[in-house]
Nucleic acid binder design. Structure first.
Lengths: 153, 153
DNA sequence: CATGAAATTGACCATTA
DNA sequence: TAATGGTCAATTTCATG
């Protein structure tokens, strides 16, 4: 992992379908060393995969809700079970165990507020062990990236 | 946007570098109609781009902090300015204006707690108009996706 | 490690059904 | 719309500096 590797990653971050030629041109290398470096980073687990960035609106998934969850108990068992249940709810796209005055932060993506109300009623409120939950709707997203810049320009 | 389009998207979501042959085989179509559908979705803005999924640990960016921010004033001007300042801080990778008992939720990615402390001191605390902020460290991430499943299996 | 050349595979587009 | 097939460019591999 040197500076060139990071540069390659930032090119891929902007466009994961860039050709080796384009990548090479951007980082000042010929295509084949780029290919070798990428393979190496894939094997090392630095690169976990390649995805597409989709427009939620276009897919009729306009609403994002951030949900703070506090559990009744914090036994290993409860936490484990809770994690499993969450993983099985497709609309819950992120779940983080956090420090602070609540236990979990969830990111939930739904079509609209009606959909969210149904999700709350039919799925979240049925989970045993939730003491309290607090929902915040995302009104506007000012910035959305995955990781900080990998190279100083 | 029909069922086949969604199926193509879910293939790309799992591997954005899949070839048209692979995509075609997965959705039951020959490569060229897949190509046409993808191009159409790119032009329509359904597909915004292609990115790489990176391992934060491997890049020495192990800590994620969720920061709840409350502003002093909620004038258009203040909100606008705040958004601009945040956008210029690389470590702040997400910023959402939310409803509820605080105004913004930020996701901040840093190397470690020392790095975060410095960021707070040198950048966040210097922003005018912040009344209050509350940080929660992500202890463990149970689930991380971008959008709910696009097709029922 | 990088380069450059060779073989293989994929993207893209016109045509046909 | 989908399939077919042809062309051109890209990926991938390897021998060499």
């Amino acid at each position: 992992m040197d500076r060139l590797d990071r540069k390659i990653l930032s090119v891929l971050q902007a466009n994961a379908r860039a050709s080796l030629q384009e990548i090479g041109a951007a980082v000042g290398l010929s295509p084949s060393p780029c290919w070798g470096r990428i393979k190496k980073m894939e094997e090392a687990g630095v690169i976990e995969g390649y995805t597409v960035r989709l427009n939620p609106q276009a897919l009729d998934l306009a609403d994002t809700v951030l949900v703070q969850v506090t559990l009744d108990s914090h036994s290993d068992n409860t936490l484990e079970k809770f994690g499993e249940v969450l993983a099985s709810i497709p609309e819950v796209v992120e779940a983080h165990l956090v420090s602070g005055d609540y236990d979990y932060l969830l990111r939930v993506v739904v079509r609209d507020t009606r959909d969210y109300e149904r999700l709350l009623r039919e799925k979240l409120y049925k989970i045993k062990g939730i003491r309290h939950s607090r929902s915040s709707f995302v009104l506007r997203t000012l910035k959305k990236a995955d990781l900080p810049l990998l190279v100083d320009r």
